[in-house]
Design a protein around this nucleic acid. Sequence first.
DNA 1: GCCGTTTTCGGCCCGACTGTTTTCAGTCG
Length: 573
Amino acid sequence: MLNKSFTDLLNEMAVLLELNQDNVFRIRAYQTAAQAVAALTSDIASLTREQLLEVSGIGKGIADKIEEFVKTGHVKEHDDLKEKFPAGLLDLLNVSGLGPKRARLLYDELKIDSFDKLKKAAAAGRLQKIPGFGEKIEQNILKGLHLAEQARSRMLLWEARRLVNDVLLQLRGVPGLLEIEPAGSLRRGKETVGDLDILCASRNPDALIERFTHLPSVERVLAAGATKSSVLLSGGVQCDLRVVAAGSFGAALQYFTGSKEHNVALRERALRMGYTVNEYGLYRVSDKKQAKPVAGKTEQDIYKKLGLSFIPPELRENRGEIAAAEKNRLPELLEESDVKGCFHNHTDLSDGTSSLEDMADAAEKKGWEWYAVGDHSQSLKVAGGMAPAAVRKKIEKIRALNKKRRVCRLLSASEVDILADGRMDYADDLLAEIDVVTGSIHSGFHQSEEQITGRLVKAMENPHVDCIAHLSGRLLGRREPYAFNTDKVLQVAERTGTALEINGQPDRQDLTDINALAAKKRGIPMAVSTDAHSTEQLNYMSIAVTVARRAWLEKSDILNTKTYPELLEWLKD
DNA sequence: GCCGTTTTCGGCCCGACTGTTTTCAGTCG
């Protein structure tokens, strides 16, 4: 699959073109194209020129470059640009306060092309001698340099939610506060979050900014204006606060939820309809002074005035949601309250930390109607995988427990390893006794694409395997997905009716939103799972549901929304 | 470089904050 490397190439082209001070719209076109390629599920190498040109954001120029890249592994213009600027110069753009213009100036004037040279020049006071630079900018660059060196990668959605809730709690009591809501990629439910955005409506913005910049967890104040402030929380997470009047809250929430691409498309639509939209409201273009907003108090009003049904934040990525909203054809997204149970989880019989009884109690407490209690299979020694005899004993225990339980019905489940040669880790007769069999890969990550695809296909063709867990095997920030042919695997899942899991572990989130959407298009059933290893981790269901929502999934796409009798019916099939 | 409910040419989203400057450029989101 060349898509990832080509996406990276397009993004790097955009940066290089910025340094080259190329046309800003050409630069934007490369960024848009990178987004478009990232959202494709088919390999760019497998698409015809006609198919490429159908993709919005890809025109003749980019299509040429795709063909060149597929054929030769290079793009000449990219190579030429890279030749022009030293590699270290690109790194410098990661320094906050240093954009393409200033970086270029530093390179032209002082031949600065590395963190090291930048640090020395700034410390010696040589930057402030450059026209347009001054003492403050020099100091800010030094600070930015320090931050970049201890650069924090994006945090996981789960962690971001925890951090933002902590800040919200401390701001809720500030006098004059009317509304407060997290925005940004966190509200859109992106798998990782760069920094935290919080939006408020208040009668007393000063008090809010004052409290915000003095929170105990604030390490440094980056900016503090009348309506906007940025701080660095301890641990290096940036948190931005915006304050608006109540009448603008909806417009501002829409604005700061993004995504940028969604907002650009929305504002272009607004202009075509004779409106202009900013964070304060929707205005007629003829209303030059923006005296009378047409909408602004709620997000719903903004979308309605633009002839659109309300677009849930998770869909705002400019992947066709505006066209769908126009035709009133948005999906009715899965809600966590639709979920009636979970397939994939563990107990202390393998590598979990809670007992079978405690897990079952916790599932019941979540209001679930059924719960398939799982554990690892025998090969996964590091996780205390269970031998066949232990599995049979566990099945007996579950049957006995079920006799005493009324509310949440228990089923037996197992996460069974797909071995290096594609066989399942238990014999078929045992698999037949287990209610829910989930197959997963925990070994042989470095096998070839053919081998791993073959293992997944063989597992799905086993009639006892109900579901495949964490399809790609990635761990966010730690492990790349193993090599497998997505199209082929989805094709076989469609044919065999094998379900695919959306794993809610914060560092997995696997299927990805893009693959889950591709699976939906083929009508493949999916399961949202917690993969819980303790009672608390059953709350990871919220993460799995968020991924499903980002993938446009509805109740009917998800097995967990089935009632207990419906579930038994599906398992029988 | 892309795109079309004005357009195949001429547009391309919008504003806050900061710092270096006396009206604006650069950066950021």
